[in-house]
Structure formats: C-alpha cells, structure tokens
Simulated scan of single mutants.
Amino acid sequence: MILFGIVYSIFNGTIDDVNTAMFEASTQAVQLIIGFIAIFTFWLGMMEIAKRAGLLDQLTRLTRPLLRKIFPDLSPSDPALGFIMSNLTANFFGLGNAATPFGLKAMSALQEQNPNKNSPSRSMVTFLCLNTAALTLFPTTVISLRMSHGALDAMDIVIPAFLATCGSCITALLLDRLFWSFSKRRKKV
C-alpha cells in the first residue's frame, strides 16, 4: 500500500506532500515513543519495586481464595497461581508488556499440568479469558496517547475505563463458565 501510494503520488504530482508527511509522521512517532517510554518506565519500575518488596507475593496470598474459585482445577500451592496473579496485577496497572512474560509463564505452568497436551485445560481457557478481558485501573497506553496529544485531563478516562474493564471481566468469566458447562453436558451425552 505504501509503494502504491508513492507511485500514485509520483503520477499525481504530489510527491513533495508525501515526503513532508513522511517526515512529520516520523517526528510524531518518535515523540509518541518518548512519551510511552517515560510512563512505561515509571510503572515497570513500580512493579519491580512491588515485586522485590514482596507486595506481589502478599497480593497473591490475599487473592488466593478468589483465584481458587476462579481456577478450581488448581491446587492451593500451585505455582501457576503466582504467575496468574502477577499477570493480572500488571494488566490491572495497564502494563500489558509487563504482563506478557507472566502470562507466558502461567500458560507454561498450566500446560505442564494439562493431561491432554493437544487441547487447552479448563484453567488455561479461563486464564486466557481473564487475560484478554484484562481488568484495568490505570490504562497507561491510552493515558500516554492522550498526554502526547495534549489532552486537557489525560486521566479523566480512568474511572470509565475501569468500569468498562469490570464489565468485560465479568462477561468473560460468565461466558467461560457458560461454555464450560455446555461442553461438560455435551461430553456426558
């Protein structure tokens, strides 16, 4: 598409406009990335401090009863629960990039316990639903975009985003349970 656009601009006589737009867009991209780096560095640093201070371990212990209800197939001492909680915590603070390694570790730990390696376990599907729906309090990427584009109050989306992600998580869990019960009934028949 880029090549087609450049060829078209040559025949159209607007190649100078294309060059100007390319340089302006690259400048804006660099400015956007610098804004992202500042916010992501701050929140990744906060996550690392929380991890080293043992806050994530404490949070995992506090939420273990809830996680046990969401993931009934896992034992209370399962290491996957720690990775799942770390992933959910990173997503909660809008750090999708920081959540990815925890999510991969959680899926690997869940796959090790999976009796049927060719299809996902119930816990794997539930985790995927939660990770995709991602309960988020502080959407750092959207706030970074709003700040870099000069929004008057870049933080005014925090409450609506939190409410929207609450709804998406509840919906994801309800659908997960609904489809699981359908598949369980189908296996009995």
Rank of each mutant, 00 (worst) to 15 (best):
D17N: 12
M47E: 03
F83Y: 08
M46Q: 04
G103N: 12
A133L: 06
L174P: 00
F40W: 04
T141Q: 06
L163G: 09
R122D: 11
R64S: 13
A164T: 07
R122P: 00
P101N: 11
N87I: 13
P139W: 08
L178K: 06
I70R: 00
I159F: 11
L130R: 03
D17V: 12
F92N: 08
L67D: 11
T126Q: 02
K184G: 01
S148F: 05
K117W: 10
V125T: 05
A154Q: 02
G103W: 03
G54V: 10
F127V: 12
S119E: 13
A53S: 10
A172Y: 00
F138S: 02
T171W: 10
M22G: 09
P120H: 06
T165W: 03
T41I: 10
R61W: 10
A109N: 05
T27W: 08
E112W: 07
I157T: 13
P139V: 05
L66I: 12
G103M: 11
S181P: 07
G54Q: 07
L44W: 03
P72E: 05
I170Q: 11
M22D: 08
Q28Y: 12
I6N: 03
P65V: 14
A99P: 02
K117A: 15
L59Y: 07
I39K: 01
Y8H: 13
F162Q: 11
G103E: 04
D16P: 00
G94R: 00
S119F: 10
S77V: 11
G94I: 13
L67Q: 06
L174G: 02
L56K: 02
A53I: 07
L110K: 06
L173Q: 00
A109D: 04
N19M: 15
L74I: 14
T141S: 08
F71T: 01
T141F: 13
L128F: 05
L66M: 11
L163A: 08
I34H: 03
D57T: 14
V158M: 12
L145P: 01
Y8T: 11
L59Q: 06
R64K: 12
F40K: 02
F127N: 04
L152D: 14
L95D: 00
K187H: 08
M147D: 05
I157L: 06
N131T: 14
A25D: 08
M47H: 15
R186G: 01
T20N: 08
T20C: 03
S119V: 15
F92R: 04
G150C: 05
A29H: 04
L145Q: 05
D176F: 00
S9W: 04
Q58V: 15
T14P: 09
P72H: 11
G96W: 07
Q28W: 08
G150H: 08
A80I: 13
Q58D: 07
L59K: 02
F102K: 03
H149K: 11
D57R: 12
W180A: 14
